[in-house]
Structure formats: structure tokens, C-alpha cells
Amino acid sequence: MYKTDVLYVAYLRVSTQRQGYSGLGLEAQREIIQNYLRETKPIFEYVEVESGRKTDKGRPKLKEALSQCRTYGAKLIVAKLDRLARNVSFLSALLESDVEIVFCDFPQANKMVLHILASISQYEAELISTRTKQALAAKKARGCKLGNPEHLMDKHKEAIAKSNETNRKKAEDNPNNKRAVAMLRILAAQGKTLSEMTDTLNNEGFVTSQGHEFRVSQVYVLLKRYNIKY
């Protein structure tokens, strides 16, 4: 997995409108990729500011990254599957292309698994869009004024802050997270890397608040949330 003779081109993406919801900023993506590669460094890094639902026509940085992969015989590396695409047909075309793609959150996943995950991600995105449109239509039908430019951004930020605070309190009260955090403090003090801490939690039987194995991105969030230095 960590061969130094393998070349990588890193691709990072944030959404213009939804980047605040993901909790996975550019620095977090860089750290996840670097912890996956360990001593190896990407030969190029491309940052896209674009919605994940757009196709390749709206993804110029992705085109450049793929071009560099072909030029240098490198692999495209992405921190998380949904950082590349939520559109199934778009992802399918990429997976069938001549460029090998590595997803840090699913390094061993085959193409069939990635297709399934992309389908679920696309379905969730479409479901959110449909519900948002229905909610706006219902408000408009009740005579509510929509999209007041003077207050819309403030309300948007307030809603995000409340949601983050609610999620934080739920996470702090969850016994699974408490046990995992206690172990992370020990591992961080031992100088373990993000990937090593994730592997240790999973090997020792720790699970997330939802009862699943930990991913690197989830461990990163816990470390930041509890201000654990590593």
C-alpha cells in the first residue's frame, strides 16, 4: 500500500454551497491522504471548488489531475469517495478509465462496491434536493417570503452552528465515543499516526456511535473535537 516507487496525484474538492456540511475541509483531506501515503508525497495536488453533483464538464481541476496521472503513470488519490463524485454514471466512467483511483476511506474496495456506494451517495443527494424543494414550495404556498438576501446567510450560519452543537452533544454523551476517545488519548501520547490509531481502534473492537468500524476521517474528527494533539 505504501510503496515509494508508486506515484500519486492528489485531488481535493470542496463544494461552493455545501462545504460547511461535510466537516471535511481541505486541510483534513490533505492529512488523510498524507497519513495514507506515509513517507510518500503526491507529485501534484489539485484543488477543485465545485459541487460533487456536477459532471466532468464542470471539473477542470479533475481533468488536469487525470491528465497528469496519464503523463507520469501515477494513481489518482482522493481522501473520501464523495470528494470525487456523487453521480453514478460519472464515477462509473472514471472507474473504467485508464487511470487507477485510490480512495483512502475504502482502499481495498473493488469497483462493484464503489458503484454501490456511489449509488447510495447519489440517492441521498437527490433525496435532500427533493425534500428541500418540497419544503420551499410548502413555505411559499403559505405566503412566506423566500430567499431574503439580507438575512439568508445569517440564518444559514445559525442553522449550521445549532446542528453542529447538537451533534457535538450527542457525540459526547455516547458511550462508544467516550471509550474511543480514552483510547485515542493514549495512542496520541504514544505518537501513533492517524492511520495507526484507526487500525488500533478497529482491531481492539471499538465501534462508532452507530456501531460501525472507524474510518480515518471519523478518528480525525474525534481528535479535533476533543482537542487531542498527535
Rank of each mutant, 00 (worst) to 15 (best):
L76G: 13
G143K: 13
A188P: 03
A141H: 09
Y21I: 14
L95M: 12
L62K: 01
D154K: 04
Y8C: 03
S92L: 06
G58F: 00
N177E: 07
T16S: 13
E96Y: 07
P175D: 01
E27Y: 08
M1V: 09
R38W: 10
A10E: 07
E172H: 10
F214G: 10
D199Q: 15
H151K: 15
L26S: 01
Q68S: 10
L201S: 03
I160K: 15
E100C: 03
A138K: 11
K169F: 11
Y123L: 14
V49W: 07
F90Q: 15
Y21P: 01
K229Y: 10
Q34H: 13
D98C: 07
C104N: 07
N227R: 12
K155C: 09
R185G: 06
E39F: 11
A10V: 03
A137L: 09
Q68E: 14
S163E: 04
S129H: 13
L76N: 03
D173P: 03
S89I: 05
A182H: 01
K54G: 09
G20K: 11
G147A: 08
E204A: 13
T71P: 02
T16G: 06
E196V: 00
L184C: 00
D105Y: 00
L194T: 01
G20E: 12
T200M: 12
T193M: 11
R215E: 14
S15A: 05
K145F: 08
V99L: 09
G191H: 02
T166H: 11
